[in-house]
Nucleic acid binder design. Structure first.
Lengths: 218, 218
DNA sequence: AATTAAATTTAGACAAAACTAAAAATAGAT
DNA sequence: ATCTATTTTTAGTTTTGTCTAAATTTAATT
């Protein structure tokens, strides 16, 4: 399994191809910043290896074996992210790039020991669930902050957009996972929200609220 | 800097090409289990990048820039080895293979933080010195056990051969770095040694003694 | 149903890193 | 100094993963 093959599997999984849904070569190419023709080549290769189902002009979807492989890479990526934050004091906006490299290290013992060192975390620094060794996901009842009713509240558990600018914005505004946020009011005009957090009130745009996952607790 | 280029620089350094001594393509090929013609190709490439001096039919030696790069890779390799042993309970015969992969991770912050986490170790699990960030080596006055006189003693500080079989042999015979070993007698016939360690006497072959570094302390 | 626009694949090319086989240079021995 | 054996390089091929440009298929519209 080459690094490139692993990256394709991961991307197809993230685009939803894990549920046998067919993903177009174009979508994959755009996500990976490569050309559709390159994706076609790789689709054939992965298909021959039994990792994806590929139908010409239709797209690809992961086979069971492909899902299993994708999950093991995602597991490694997220565990390394936790390691970087918890053990080496990286910030949550610094970890992705390094984890993209570390996820390709081939050693089952290594990742199992990292898992143990971290005391078997269930979520990564962005709130994304870490698949278990046997490929199971921790399901969680989470909603976007933009979608819970006025006067309800929840604990911030994850981000939908984990880009560096968004994460830095959250830091600057002291919005962190674990914080409890209450929706006080919604502005019809632009869908911005008035919220309460740590006893303080603030206003956030719809853009922000639509990229924050919360777990309702009332 | 590709992974392959890094591996060549590391090998040239280990073969002694750091002291401007010229290393033959054959020697490099043998060490890396590849073909001399492949080495020639890479020699040209590294030469164009200013990392080695290459003279046709003569061999290669590292430039200052090449030495610096080689040391940074060796530094990473050895720090990761310490990490694996100290933090993840790997044995000293398991670390090399994984460190071969980890040494190529590109993140200065990562390796500096690992260094800090380990409290700036000076030697790796096999007793090899870890270059500092600015490329300096910890020099140590060490001798092969086979070369110290009868009735002298020293602390075991490193291994010359760090192959898995040799390391396992040492484990089996309870020979570990840090142990004090006294040479009681030498057999002229086969150069084997009678030694004392932990109060117990044992006999070891010349082969073994010639691959154990000790620091004399009397 | 025909036409056109968009998406997708094919064909051919390229760069990196390796290989094989043949050619060239070096070093050792007489 | 010449010959020969060894070492080293060159030339040409292969594989992996990518690209461009051209051809093909699909989808959308009339």
């Amino acid at each position: 399994m080459t690094r490139s093959e692993e990256n394709y599997l991961k991307t197809i999984f993230h685009l939803g191809g894990g549920d046998a849904k067919s993903i177009t070569t174009n979508a994959i190419a755009e996500q990976m910043e490569t050309k559709p023709s390159s994706v076609t080549d790789m689709a054939k290769k992965l298909s021959e290896k039994g990792l994806v189902d590929y139908v010409r002009y239709q797209g690809v979807s992961l086979t069971d074996s492909g899902v299993k492989t994708a999950l093991s890479i995602i597991r490694k990526h997220r565990l390394w992210e936790v390691f970087l934050v918890k053990k080496l004091d990286f910030t949550w906006d610094e970890v992705h790039e390094v984890a993209e490299q570390l996820e390709h290290i081939k050693s089952e013992k290594l990742i199992d020991k990292i898992d143990e060192l971290l005391d078997f975390p269930k979520y990564d620094p962005h709130g994304d669930p870490i698949p278990t060794k046997d490929g199971k996901f921790q399901e969680r009842d989470e909603k976007l902050l933009s979608e819970i009713p006025i006067n309800s509240q929840g604990v911030c558990v994850g981000v939908k957009d984990s880009s560096v600018p968004f994460l830095k914005f959250l830091d600057k505004n002291k919005i962190a996972l674990g914080n409890t946020i209450k929706v006080l009011d919604k502005e019809d005009f632009d869908n911005s929200l008035r919220i309460q957090m740590d006893g303080k009130e603030m206003r956030i745009s719809h853009q922000i609220a639509a990229n924050l996952y919360v777990k309702k607790n009332d």
